[in-house]
Simulated assay, not measured.
Amino acid sequence: MRIQQAGTIALGPGKVALLEAVKEHGSISAAARSMNMSYRRAWLLMDELNRSLKSPATVAEHGGQSGGGCALTSVGEEIIRLYRGIETQAYAACADDISALTRLIKR
């Protein structure tokens, strides 16, 4: 599922996966590395997401020996929860059709 806003993808599977990686790794750079993505690409995706929201999904953490990091806000946590819940419900509702499509794929 993708949600578009003004011609750009405001929210989709890639941005949700990146939010999950930021949550797991505590920084955009570590999240990007875990996804084999450049830091610049990850930063641009998070910036695009945050600009499309009423309140940001991430917040920069400053200081410390490692120079800070990035954490999810309650909005970021809610996005992951809602998005994954929608996926689960959609999969359950479409299980028969997904199975039929899968049978059409060459093995």
Results as ranks from 00 to 15, higher is better:
Asp96Ala: 15
Met37Tyr: 08
Thr73Ala: 07
Gly67Gln: 06
Ser99Thr: 15
His25Ala: 01
Asp47Glu: 13
Ala100Glu: 13
Ile105Met: 14
Asp97Ala: 14
Tyr91Asn: 12
Leu19Phe: 08
Asn36Ser: 14
Cys94Trp: 13
Glu87Ser: 10
Arg51Tyr: 06
Arg40Thr: 12
Gln5His: 11
Gly12Asp: 12
Leu101Val: 09
Ser55Ile: 02
Arg51Ala: 09
Pro56Met: 13
Ala21Thr: 02
Ile98Thr: 05
Leu19His: 04
Gln4Thr: 10
Ala95Phe: 10
Gly7Ser: 04
Ile9His: 01
Gly85Asp: 10
Asn50Lys: 10
Gly68Asn: 03
Ala57Pro: 11
Ala42Pro: 02
Ile86Cys: 09
Met37Phe: 07
Arg103Trp: 07
Asp96Pro: 00
Asp47Ala: 08
Ala30Tyr: 01
Gly68Val: 05
Glu48Tyr: 01
Asn36Ala: 11
Tyr39Asp: 10
Leu44Tyr: 12
Ile98Cys: 13
Gly14Phe: 07
Met46Ser: 05
Leu104Asp: 03
Lys106Ala: 11
Val59Gln: 12
Asp97Lys: 10
Ala21Arg: 04
Ser52Pro: 06
Lys15Met: 05
Arg84Ile: 07
Val75Gly: 00
Ser66Arg: 15
Ser38Trp: 09
Ala6Asn: 14
Glu77Gln: 11
Arg51Met: 10
Arg41Pro: 00
Ser52Glu: 05
Arg40Leu: 11
Tyr83Arg: 06
Thr8Phe: 10
Ser27Gln: 06
Ser55Gly: 00
Tyr83Val: 01
Ala93Val: 09
Leu19Tyr: 06
Asp47Val: 08
Ser99Gly: 08
Met1Trp: 08
Ile86His: 10
Ser74Met: 05
Gly67Val: 04
Arg107Leu: 14
Ala93Asp: 14
Ala10Met: 05
Arg84Asp: 09
